[in-house]
Amino acid sequence: MKSIQNYKLTVNNWCLVQKKIAITALVPPELIFACRGEPFDVNNIIPGSKKYPRNKLCAWTAIWQEMLSKREIDIDFLIVVAGGDCHNALVDGQKVAMSGIPTHFFFYPFDGDPDYLESQLYKLSDFLGNVGSPEKPGQIRELKKLGQKIDKKRADGKISAGDAFRIMISFSDLMGDLDKFKKVISSTEERKIDMGNRVALIGVPPIFHDFHDVAQALGLAVVFDELPFEFIRHSGNDIPGIARDYCNYTFARPLDFRIKFLQEELEKRKVDGVIHYTQFACHHMLEDEIMRLKLDYPMLTIQGDLPGNTPEQIKLRLEAFRELLERS
């Protein structure tokens, strides 16, 4: 069997042709575009998937693993976030690598060391064929400013939570095409939103494709999405700059760092309550009791497993949570 290292050696001469680069979690898209790659976040197709993976813990990783290994997603290379994401991804990423897709394993520093992250970014740049379009990070920075405006308008009740979420979550790969993505952002419709109860959604994003719209219809306006907010808040014009900013990616850092950041954001956004989404068989489930202890807000914990519509049992919890907030 070929080693992962061997796969890496096969990919260094492709840099003149744009290749589709799958990512399993946040990998600075600035660097992928700068290396003339077209990023593709494999998670973005999972909420709409009807796949029942054969061997699973967390459905997110199990589904992309199976689809990539069976070549049901058309990609050229894979970057697995192996440090700062989960061990399921680390193992499922190796399964994909063994199926023959050239794969690179990327590690965020737990202690936020920018020098370590810089060395990781240089290794990634080597894997991707090195920087060929140095202007791309600057263009992405401008798009992220638009993303931050969308986020603010959503919190101000001018854009629906569902529309804002769909834009913000797409900042992990910017749809692989900066011009196309800019047009999509520009087409976002503004309208007055009945805000009702202001809630923050923390944890991994829900695996249900209609979650934000369902919550809105049940009187819960999501004014903060933890992970998508990370997608729009980091940037950098070159590798040292990207390293200095992305080393504060909260999901890769210790819990106290992440919680302090959350406390500030939740206060800023004047939330009435917090929804903690957890995924079945995901290590983030273990964080729930700490979140409940440290975040001083009414909190609803929900758990999802397979993708699809928001299940009725979750709707019951959302409706009961709205009633709870109205009693508070």
Binding site: E312, L316, E319, A320, E323, L324, R327
Partner: peptide, 17 residues
């Protein structure tokens, strides 16, 4: 109850409340 929205009603409320 689970079927609160499937039966005719003037108002409905979750089982928790």
């Amino acid at each position: 109850g689970y079927f609160r929205n499937s039966v005719p009603h003037r108002a409905s409320v979750t089982e928790i409340t």
